[in-house]
Write a protein that binds this DNA or RNA. Structure first.
Length: 309
DNA sequence: CGTATTTGACCGGCGC
DNA sequence: GCGCCGGTCAAATACG
C-alpha cells in the first residue's frame, strides 16, 4: 500500500504559525493534546512528565525503540514552580499517560453510548435507506481523543484493524484526511487521520468512540515485560508502537509524539476505569459552540490558542 | 473470491 | 434560502 508521501507539499501554513510552532519547536505536548479548556489550563501548568509519570515511560523499551531523542530533547520541561492541585489532575486515573496527552472532545456529551444511537438508526433505516440520522437532537458524537505522532506513514499500526471508509481534502491543508472505522463488528470506533499541515511529518490521529473489544492483534511476547509498573500497560491493549511490526518500524520510523502513549488504550479503557475521568473532562469542557471551525485543530489545540490566531 | 481501498455523491449542520 | 464544509455511504476497483 503506497503511502501518499508524494503529496507532501508544504503549503503556506495559512496563518497558523503557532500551530507548527507548538507542535514542532516547543513541544508543549500537554497543550496540544489537552483540548479541554478550563481543565487543560490546570493541566497545562502541570509538568507534562509529572502527569505522565514519565519515569515509567522512559524506562520503557517502547521509548527506547521509538523515541529515544524525543523523550530526551523534545519533552517539554516541567514548569518549575507551578503545580496544580485540581481534583482532576491529581485524580488522574491509573493511566496518567493518556489523561494528560489525549484530548477529550467536548463534542461528545452523550452519556449513553451507542445503544440509543443504534436503536434510532435501525428504526430509521426502515424509513429511509440512506443514513436517516435525523433525530430531535443533533447527531451525537462519541468522545474524541486526538494525538499526534511523528511518522512517515499516515495510518499507524495500533493493534486494531481499521477499514478506511472515506477520505476528504482538508481545508487549508494540502493533506487529505482519512476516515477509518474499526472492522470489528459491533465496535463503532472511528478514527480520523491527517497530517499536520504545519509539519507534514506529524500525523494527527483522532479517535472517536471506544472499543468494545480487546485488540485483535496479540502483543509480541518479547514485549510482554515492557509495561512494568504501568497499571494500564500498553501491552494490555496494544499501542501503535508495540503493534508495529519490526519491519514497519524500520521502514517508517514512527515517532509517537505522545511519548509512547496510545489513545487506544485510552479508548478501550473508557468503558472501565477511565470512564470517570472522561466524564469529568466532559463536564469541565465547554460546549462545542465555543469551538469554532478549526477542524482537527480544535481537537489538539486548546481553545485559547485557537482564539489567539 | 473475499476483503480492503478508492472516490464521487450525498446528507446534515452551520454561517451568511 | 443558499452555499460551504465535514462526515459518511456505497459502487467500483484493487489486492491477496
Amino acid at each position: 500500500m503506497e503511502r501518499k508521501e508524494g503529496i507532501i507539499k508544504m503549503e503556506d501554513v495559512q496563518g497558523n504559525p503557532s500551530y507548527s510552532e507548538y507542535t514542532v519547536n516547543n513541544f508543549p505536548l500537554q497543550s496540544i493534546f489537552d483540548l479541554s479548556s478550563r481543565e487543560d489550563e490546570k493541566i497545562r501548568s502541570l509538568g507534562f512528565m509529572d502527569l505522565l509519570g514519565i519515569q515509567d515511560l522512559t524506562g520503557s523499551p517502547l521509548l527506547d525503540i521509538m523515541v529515544p531523542s524525543l523523550t530526551a530533547t523534545q519533552a517539554p520541561p516541567t514548569p518549575p514552580s507551578k503545580k496544580i492541585d485540581s481534583p482532576e489532575a491529581t485524580n488522574q486515573p491509573a493511566t496518567p499517560n493518556f489523561s494528560s496527552i489525549s484530548s477529550a472532545s467536548s463534542e461528545a456529551v452523550n452519556d449513553e453510548p451507542v445503544k440509543a444511537d443504534e436503536q434510532e438508526e435501525n428504526q430509521q433505516k426502515t424509513n429511509k435507506q440512506l443514513k436517516p440520522k435525523k433525530t430531535n437532537q443533533k447527531r451525537q458524537r462519541e468522545p474524541r481523543f486526538a494525538f499526534m505522532t511523528k511518522s512517515e506513514v499516515d495510518h499507524l499500526e495500533d493493534g486494531y484493524r481499521w477499514r478506511k471508509y472515506g477520505q476528504k481534502a482538508v481545508k487549508n491543508s494540502s493533506f487529505p484526511r482519512s476516515y477509518y472505522r474499526c472492522t470489528t463488528a459491533s465496535c463503532n470506533v472511528k478514527k480520523r487521520v491527517e497530517r499536520c499541515f504545519g509539519d507534514p511529518s506529524i500525523v494527527v490521529t483522532t479517535y472517536e468512540g471506544q472499543h468494545t473489544h480487546p485488540s485483535p492483534i496479540m502483543p509480541r511476547p518479547s514485549l510482554g515485560s515492557s509495561h512494568l509498573g504501568s497499571p494500564m500497560s500498553a501491552a494490555a491493549f496494544g499501542t501503535p508502537m508495540q503493534r508495529t511490526p519490526p519491519h514497519y518500524q524500520h521502514q517508517h520510523q514512527q515517532q509517537p509524539l505522545t511519548n509512547g502513549l496510545s489513545p487506544l488504550n485510552f479508548g478501550h479503557k473508557i468503558g472501565s476505569i477511565n470512564a470517570s475521568f472522561l466524564h469529568e473532562k466532559r463536564l469541565c469542557t465547554p460546549g462545542p459552540s465555543l469551538l469554532k471551525d478549526h477542524g482537527l485543530l480544535q481537537d489538539i489545540l486548546p481553545p485559547h490558542m485557537l482564539k489567539e490566531e
